[in-house]
Design a protein around this nucleic acid. Sequence first.
DNA 1: TTGAAAGCGCTAACAG
DNA 2: CTGTTAGCGCTTTCAA
Lengths: 377, 377
Amino acid sequence: MARPCCYFSPMPLPEPLRAATVGDVAALAGVSSATAARALGGYGTVSPRTRDRVADAAHALGYRANGIARSMVTGQTSTLGLVVADIENPFFAAVTRGFGDVARSAGYDVMVVNTDEDPARERAALGVLVGRRVDGVALSPASSREAGHLHMHVASGQPLVLLDRGVRGLRADVVGIDNRAAARRAVEHLVAAGHRRIAMLAGAGSGGRPLQAEGVPPALMTGLDRIRGYRDALSSAGLDGLPDYLRVTHFRSSAARAAIRELLALPVPPTAVFCSDSLLSLGVLAGAADSGAVIPVDLSLVAFDDADWMDVVTPAVTVMDQPAYDIGAAAADRLLRRVAGDTARPRRVVLPTSLVARGSVAAPRTAVRRVQRPAAP
Amino acid sequence: MARPCCYFSPMPLPEPLRAATVGDVAALAGVSSATAARALGGYGTVSPRTRDRVADAAHALGYRANGIARSMVTGQTSTLGLVVADIENPFFAAVTRGFGDVARSAGYDVMVVNTDEDPARERAALGVLVGRRVDGVALSPASSREAGHLHMHVASGQPLVLLDRGVRGLRADVVGIDNRAAARRAVEHLVAAGHRRIAMLAGAGSGGRPLQAEGVPPALMTGLDRIRGYRDALSSAGLDGLPDYLRVTHFRSSAARAAIRELLALPVPPTAVFCSDSLLSLGVLAGAADSGAVIPVDLSLVAFDDADWMDVVTPAVTVMDQPAYDIGAAAADRLLRRVAGDTARPRRVVLPTSLVARGSVAAPRTAVRRVQRPAAP
DNA sequence: TTGAAAGCGCTAACAG
DNA sequence: CTGTTAGCGCTTTCAA
């Protein structure tokens, strides 16, 4: 015998297969879906009694608002996009956290996308975020040259905040530090310690793509600015006639390790090195050890970004610290203002850096000798 | 004189204020919106000529598909949710990267949410993700006790993969390592070096909430399992009668620093310590230095997770390494299968760990003495 | 191969 | 205070 119950009243789909909608809740509560929506969404006016009935029905049905549908009609997603160049770099991890904390406390969620310093992936990431209709995007540009997609994005009127790195000619807010001044100060610290042959390791791009020709500045404003600061410091110290100790490497400690080994193997090696990134300084530590160079006796080091391990190594690493968490937080704040409709002209938010002097900087051996002579009459 | 041009044909909204829609493209291409949508979305059948016309029109208008609207009708978002306990922990940073790489190569985007080890924030994060209708969620549970929301989520039929940490009784895939065995092996390494008084620092919770009473195991399966492994190793070595050197601290290096100082100040201090996390080992290095203890002479150390700095400190840190990137990648893979409809019973994916022996482990001083005597006859 | 029309779940006018 | 109605931009039958 067949099961007659099924002929005329097909079973509704079992619970797990279809999520409850406003209409379901409304039906159970015995009100119109508009009223249910008002009660559920917390807008308009609903009588307390109705509100309770709807709430009960929603609870019974396990109703969860469909953010997609809501976004569809409101045109807003309450979501911010964050495009970072390398989520594994502690600097960006902290930026991400600061950004997320501020966004969340303002009722926004965050979609994070990683680009691995690749402009093509960055363009794709931006496309994804725009496709998802995020309300705004914060982005650390992988390149200041390949930025056509950024210009188009800004031209389309969508809020964009640049993180850490600027892009020349782009009408967008920038949140970061004064890289040139910070680098200059870091190198001046080395000059003050008596160093003359000061190298710099600058990071650019990931391992994915070939680097530009030797000596050409990286396609990164941050790197460029730090290189400028390095040169500023050298020339005000009258040190610009010396051999070129600048090396541009990938953002990998292995690349820095090779670079520092090569530098130390020079006929006239540098006595100090300034690293534009914490990852690179990791490579310097390893490479110096490879070369048998002792820090700070044979090589002084100033790094960028105060990574958590920097004060447990021996010697502790002197760093130019930048407020990564605050940069992320400030970027979210700026972006939220733009999302809220602020159309004032682009602002540049510059956060303070600080030099943290630790044990990795000492006078170069030659300078020590010079000091020692008059000290023993 | 008034401007008559505006009376009968109001200007259309200027470009930046309204994004082009399928309808706009269709109108410009002279086809129906259904056809334009087919051409744009790459589904159905469209003649090559029409396809080109539509493509041109789309290009001219700067059309970008509205993912929200698409999700609305397809019920899919091509987005995966990732809930991590601490984005700043290098372990989770690597997991995030592995997860993202696999997701992206399968055409999925990722929404990352940080919970700071707080179950309440975890519940909220899951709610957000569900509201946004992500196709699936991978999550590293902040607590194995407060997991009601996880059970509800699974009951609702939505794909969920647990990352790194399991939750007892939850019918969900788990991707991680065998924490108990790994911890046991790490501690056995210490035992083999001759240690008897072996401490353990286990992490639980962030600084946000008070920790449980002293000695109570943390509400984390990972921590629990590592503690079990520690005890396993101690008891098979016949070392369980010794004083209790286990300390449960927050996931902060400062907490570990205080804990190790306290341990080293004991009348009979431990000669070795096993840390359940790289952050904690950072604190151990600092705290040991505070106490004037030299590693590995006065204190041997085995850490968990091979952070990038671990082989540049002196001595380099012996670690139990877990494949963080692969864990993230495997989790994405598992989740994608579930999203694709795999309803086989929950699987547990266990990835291999490896002990990386470096310089932070040596024989305890007492053991050294014992060895030295017969060595000089 | 193409078009017309119906909706996805929700919000926003506008009446009642 | 509540219900009716009309979409948001897209995909998807179903006919033509």
